[in-house]
Amino acid sequence: MTGFWTQAAEMARKDLRTEVRTGEVFLITIPFGAVALMLIPLAVGTDTPLLRNIGPGMFWVVVLLFGVLVATRQSGVEGTPQQDLLSLLGIDPAAQFTGRAGATTLLLLAFELVLGPVALALYDPQPKGWPWIALLVPLVAAGLGLLGTLAATIASSIASSALVPLLVAPLSVPILLAATQTMDGLRYGNTILGWILLLVTMDLLLAVAGVLSARPLQEASR
């Protein structure tokens, strides 16, 4: 039997390898996200100051909405036979959660890094405080990754994947709020520490909730 982190790493590697094969995130979700970002300037017109104002917010909204798709893709990978297999391999459900959340976080991070330049080109938001942004981006990816994985696990336990967006949308409000307010704070020179702390707290709470609830949720799914 292997240790917790080996199990989590194997789970993440398996999820990422599946993504490389199917290209669901890179070939479907990311292009759709880019189109969504493009539609807003088309609707608003060439009002550059307005676009500059709404740009960061639009970026995070697109990350949130399409991030749900990234998070839910895993519920299609793990059917009942695969879940049974993981249980019978003796893999700690918390390690399964950690691995899945890790893979989803990496995919969301890639999603943000590809769409970021698109948003810069379309909205010209002239962001400031790049070191803080470099911290913000992975924190948001981790928050959405953890939240999406937790929601997918809950949905799996009650056999309804349609519930995932309904669970993710309200719970992601603090993450979205912290991300947009941090960008605004950087732009207007306001303090952002509170918002960063909110993000860190959310990430920690979601990680603890996911790890502690992994076993009961897995058993309830049968």
């Binding site: 039997m1 292997t2 080996t6 199990q7 194997e10 398996k14 390898r17 599946t18 094969r21 199917t22 990978v77 059917g79 009942t80 036979p81 695969q82 049974d84 297999l85 019978l88 391999l89 003796g90 893999i91």
Partner: peptide, 27 residues
């Protein structure tokens, strides 16, 4: 060891990757 009537394989992984996944988790 349970083999159900629906194969518990990850359909987008190769047979070798599926088997290796199990082998690595079993040490």
């Amino acid at each position: 060891g349970l083999i159900g009537h629906t194969p518990a394989l990850y359909q987008n992984l190769t047979l070798e990757e599926n088997t290796r996944f199990v082998a690595q988790l079993m040490g």
